[in-house]
Nucleic acid binder design. Structure first.
Lengths: 231, 231
DNA sequence: CGGAGGATTGAAGGCTATCAAAGTCCGTGG
DNA sequence: CCACGGACTTTGATAGCCTTCAATCCTCCG
């Protein structure tokens, strides 16, 4: 049975700051759901739209053109909020990159609850503002950076984002980590092709900047060099 | 003297929905300010950060690399909110594209006022969510679209955005409009060079898709063709 | 009229995409 | 245990889009 009391992201997600009574109310509206790697998070449910909190795993927000080009426009980690409350619906679809668990709510229910709980709306606002900041700095990357700069920036961001997932406060960025992305997905994040991504990874390895112990593993050998390359 | 009562964006900005007493309180915290075209909106004031509402004019949000490359990451029109309340400060700078008037607040004051007025925070949340949607669809453009697609998409967005500025509810997108951007700024929005922008404009003109009565004026002759090109 | 900034046009080159093939990893089944 | 198959990745060759560099042309104002 899903329960907020045992939720691992209870103190990091937008639910934090709610008192017990409120948590109980929210709990009764939502339910847990598992999504396996590669599966889309179906966004319609009983004719109602959904929003969700990520409990565990990593998901991508992706938009695509009619002719099949894809761009990953966001990545959601544990405790992140996904979906579009209030009015409009965004046409980005959500797909799990790893096996994931989420806590889903019917949008109508969530909207109403949020309007009645300013503290929750405030948390959501802070999150949305941060996400907007992050997205805007990604626009710089997409519009103005070269392939080597994109790859370096990407690896540095990954090493920071993936260090946060541990429960204990992390001590700076991770030196070694496991990418939740395939090469194609890295390409879809950076606006490149899979071949260019592969070549840049190989080049960084040959230059002694990183090690690639396996397809998904990355070890940053020379962080200073990456920072210099990131532009 | 600045006064919310006569403010032309009073009913569209986040101030809408506040009662008279609240408006008076907000009014006493903020002040009007003019910025001429090309001038940055100075973001520090008496050692305190600022946030603002756009009353009139168009401003750009821009980030740049050390070596001088620029990317416009957002454009603010009348009634839009700019700045970063609550905690972090974003490193995008704000520059007026046209002569502009804004209503500025010390961030501390604004934060406090917002926390006490959930209705205002809600308005800000809705705005921020919409801006995030818009920004994400722009990521698709920057990462995956070709120069002709970028230009077509840009012209269509402009014709919609600029139609909204009139007081009366607009009847669909504008057929003819005046760009608030120079060619270089169009390039900075789309992640292209000024030469490529110029060539694409010329090509659209030669193909009979648009007319260019003057440097800043654009007339859309064949909207269907633009839609097809936009990808 | 003359100057200056912005815009357009032209030629050449480089970066990344595209097309193609070989290599690697991993799970499955013999 | 090893062979096999398939997906993913790497590597190579080529092409093309957009940038870069450079010169000319507007257009607006003093």
């Amino acid at each position: 049975m899903s329960s907020c009391e045992t939720c691992v992201v209870r103190n990091r997600a937008i639910c934090s700051g709610l008192d017990n009574k409120e948590i109980t109310a929210l709990n009764s509206m939502g339910r847990r759901r598992s999504v396996s790697a590669g599966e889309p998070l179906i966004w319609e449910d009983d004719d109602s739209l959904l929003v969700a909190n990520v409990i565990d795993g990593v998901l991508k927000l992706v938009t695509s053109t009619e002719d099949g080009r894809e761009q990953i426009v966001g990545v959601a980690y544990p405790s992140d909020f996904i979906g579009r409350p209030f009015g409009q619906t965004s046409r980005a679809s959500v797909v799990a990159l790893t096996d994931a668990r989420v806590c889903v709510f019917a949008r109508n229910d969530f909207d109403r609850f949020a309007r009645e709980h300013p503290e929750l709306e405030h948390k959501l606002l802070e999150r949305t503002l941060s996400e907007l900041d992050r997205t805007r700095s990604w626009m710089m990357l997409l519009g103005r950076k070269t392939a080597p700069e994109k790859i370096a920036t990407f690896l540095l961001e990954m090493s920071e984002r993936l260090a946060e997932t541990g429960c204990q406060p992390s001590f700076g960025p991770a030196r070694r980590f496991s990418l939740p992305f395939s090469r194609q997905q890295v390409a879809d994040v950076l606006g490149l092709t899979i071949e260019t991504v592969s070549r840049q990874f190989t080049k960084l390895k040959n230059d002694g900047v990183i090690e690639l112990p396996s397809r998904r593993e990355v070890e940053i050998v020379n962080r200073g060099a990456l920072l210099a390359l990131a532009g």
